[in-house]
Nucleic acid binder design. Sequence first.
DNA 1: GGTCCGGTCGCAAGCGATTGCGCACAGGCG
DNA 2: CGCCTGTGCGCAATCGCTTGCGACCGGACC
Lengths: 325, 325
Amino acid sequence: MITMREVATLAGVSITTVSHVINETRSVAPETKERVLKAIEETGYTGDAIARSLVTGGTKSLGLAVSLVSHPYFAELIAAIENEATTAGYSLVLIDTRDTAESEQAAVRMLRGRRVDGLLLTPSAGAGGAVLPELRRLGIPTVLVDRLTMSQDMDQVGPENVQSTSQLARHLAELGHRRIGMVTGQIGLATTDERVLGYRLGLGRSGLQWDEDLVSSDGKLAPLLDLESPPTAVVAGDHMVLTSVMHEIRTRGLRIGRDLALVSYDEVEWSELVEPALTTMAQPIEEIGRTAVRLLLSRITDPNRPPETIRLAPTLKHRQSCGCH
Amino acid sequence: MITMREVATLAGVSITTVSHVINETRSVAPETKERVLKAIEETGYTGDAIARSLVTGGTKSLGLAVSLVSHPYFAELIAAIENEATTAGYSLVLIDTRDTAESEQAAVRMLRGRRVDGLLLTPSAGAGGAVLPELRRLGIPTVLVDRLTMSQDMDQVGPENVQSTSQLARHLAELGHRRIGMVTGQIGLATTDERVLGYRLGLGRSGLQWDEDLVSSDGKLAPLLDLESPPTAVVAGDHMVLTSVMHEIRTRGLRIGRDLALVSYDEVEWSELVEPALTTMAQPIEEIGRTAVRLLLSRITDPNRPPETIRLAPTLKHRQSCGCH
DNA sequence: GGTCCGGTCGCAAGCGATTGCGCACAGGCG
DNA sequence: CGCCTGTGCGCAATCGCTTGCGACCGGACC
């Protein structure tokens, strides 16, 4: 490995000067600077982030602890985060929380050990119990992404779930549906809870009764369809649920939009490739990712800033699966 | 931050002993060990990977430089890689190569600076020119993933493209199609080139002529459809191309499987959700990821092992878009 | 009783960078 | 000609940990 010492020797200066040239942290005579730069060039010196971190305390890296199961949605989110982080000169350490409290704990510990400057986390259902308090106690700059907590004592960025889901439900009601079902995502996640809430809200605003039987929380549509008086319209709680629901519909040979109206949270790349095209609520993923990183960086800079909760509005992609033309 | 020194003080021993207890690198009296362990527990000591790395030389981390645009395919690949790496006690530093030679160069440099123990890379079209030689010269343990190079002087893992694409083309030919087109992925990528080769091979084996006009290399189906005598069947070169092709088909109101037979490389989550269901060639993504990490770890252990090239066979998901029932 | 030896542990030298402090030299001023 | 002020640079401590070397101690053996 090329060290600063070798560069210094080659340039005929001390490592102090080399360091200052590299970091531009004190003025160096133009001619000296030139020599150092040339020496760096010749040796192909890259610097040692490890050694630097040891003394500066910072690592210029962010930990990204997400649940990798979220599939395509996740891919976009990561891409957005990576982009913003790289632009700001930070690198990303990625780790899967596997959506269990223990893995999540381990993941965060590992990230701490790696001395990341900050943490982006999609908290698991059990995070509120162990991980979050620990992070708060240790004062580790953290931003919650996508899934938010009710307590507003941490920075967090995610989609606005209540109003948007309400909007989906109301749209179905306005089309005349009286029995509107919902297939929810994983129970316990803030995201799911909020969307269920939004669904109820939407029903209420439309003057409809909330009927417990019309909500399926295991991600399956079948139970609803098997009801004595099944729903005529359904809201899918997220992307994963949507594919499951679509499969069930296909298996039963139902015609979407006619036999059963369907709207879903989360836009998918195949929304317009199925017949009829899907009406979805598209999350501003890109923006969520960008905002999360910015929030984190600003927290790193100013640890005492009061925590912010940012909700970004999704946009309705109105197509035909709801029964409209 | 809790340091080893604090733990040592609390336990009434030297940091040397604490270190040895933690790493189990020399025998320590049971009673002493007990005290140290307790002190670690009490302080919540996590260790400092940075400091450790500085002295040991290794970082227990792998660099993952991929092109994040590859979307869902990419998500699965990363998940597989992350899983295997974490299991082996390594963490992942993720960075986007943006599929340009310069970004890729920068990404790799940055990873080098971070002192990752090894590198997983999906080489861009221009990688052979700059990045790969540099990596080879510096002797940095590297494994190429997904996109392979012709020269077999580096470890690499990817799908078998030629035979499998040939199989797709032949299947169409066996169904009676005489004019079989192909919409390819990005030209210049090894993956694309190999699949085109496979397509030609398939045609040849089926006694069909290779017709340049029947190959569209800008990812669009339209040019083929606008031909005087358009193809009656089409092979989509990858996942991205597939969605583009599907959109075009949908726009034109063509009936897949009847007006135009369609087969595609890459399995997608919505293969069975469109009508008719898609016949695809599914890559063993999970296995590719796992194998890549294993190969990398073994290279880190033994830098002098001769390079290996591993091709994993994809599996045909035979459905109805090809015209079969 | 002296020597040897196995079992336990601590000292201190790094790893490669950053950075406070201080020295050397030169020019300007009285 | 002495003094002061800048400018340009180097010395050495430090970050938290690993590890070669050696100190110390009690029991076994001759």
